[in-house]
Design a protein around this nucleic acid. Structure first.
Lengths: 194, 194
DNA sequence: CGATTCTTTGAAAACAGTCAATCTGTGTGG
DNA sequence: CCACACAGATTGACTGTTTTCAAAGAATCG
């Protein structure tokens, strides 16, 4: 059950994991199955766990005064879900995270992840790389948001994360891009005609 | 000359810096003065250094096909400048970074920062916290970009980084917010009338 | 003072959002 | 197997916001 996570860590690290490392990691992981639309985190809560997704898909979003959802993050198999700011700073989150599909995940508490990262060099390395990658992706997204048109942003997403387009309906993708579902529909129709 | 950087590190770390630590840090730092509009990094180059700003202000921006600049980052005293992705991955940057004002900075190479972070626990801690803070701020900005109107984004910037409004002209602020200078001018006039 | 940079304003055009209606496909229960 | 409900996608007409372009007004600096 834990193999995907172990593989994932190995993938990000030059140092191999020892048998002991693996056992420690397995012991810290809590398996949890989420039903469709079940919340992993609600606004105002502290994000106690980070979730490594084994199967399924989750979305992280804020909700504005009008009740509109704005999706900041989409995660599928072999990705993490969780509000890192809330999880690290122990502050109440401004986001909701829920399962878009039925989702199996491994949950890890902050205390355990600190402990593991401190005692497993391979994990320390992997964790650092993941954080870096995450930050790079975020700056990229900021740049896309301020410099590209809706059409260009969609094209970029299509190239960068084609899985998302298979996996999530268009109104979710639209929200991720910061536009309405109607605008996305029109953008796509225009693109087809070219 | 290095005090601001040492203070900055102490500020982010519970562990105190030893005399030896400080000497190592000072030795790794290269002082450089940038004239107004002088480039620290140009598109296509690898970002060899990170810069800690002692005095002055820098901006990081991409340039689109039309030649329009889109500002992804503004840095002033006691902030860092540099394209972290390029610096870490040694890949060509898609950004320009230049000095908006005459700027004094301490430059550190990737090799030196790795060496220092590995050998100075206080710095390792500080560096981790800085990276986290940076990532949190970026997700926030993504959320603001997809969920807030131009007016709300300006209000948020005003509250969060009031120094910026003193320091940079409006067309720079507008670009940072992802709008045109004309729109920002009108947004501000409307806000005053309330 | 003159030059440059920055800010504001106006009018038109492009773009995106809203609301309501329709269309499509999927899956459920009778 | 059909009828129906439901979620998703599309379309049209309308509204509102933002951009664009051009011009003119401040402000700043040598």
């Amino acid at each position: 059950m834990h193999e995907p996570l172990l593989k994932y860590i190995q993938n990000y690290s030059a140092t191999p994991l020892t048998e002991g490392d693996m056992r420690m990691i397995e012991e810290a992981c809590i398996f949890k199955r989420f039903r469709k639309r079940q919340y992993f985190l609600q606004e105002g809560e502290v994000c106690k766990y980070l979730a490594f997704i084994l199967k399924g898909a989750m979305r992280q979003y804020s909700v504005d005064e009008k009740g509109t959802e704005h999706i900041v993050y989409l995660s599928i198999e072999n990705w993490w879900a969780g509000d890192r700011e809330s999880h690290t700073m122990l502050t109440p989150s401004r986001y909701f995270i829920d399962a878009w599909e039925e989702t199996d995940a491994l949950l890890i508490t902050r205390a355990d992840s600190i402990k593991l990262i401190d005692s497993i060099p391979a994990l320390k390395e992997a964790s650092k790389k993941m954080d870096e990658k995450n930050a790079f992706a975020l700056l990229n997204r900021v740049n896309a948001n301020i410099s590209l048109s809706a059409e260009q942003r969609y094209a970029e997403l299509e190239k960068k994360y084609p899985e998302f387009l298979q996996r999530f309906p268009q109104h979710i993708i639209a929200s991720y891009l910061g536009i309405t579902k109607e605008t996305l529909s029109r953008v796509r129709n225009r693109a087809v005609k070219k």
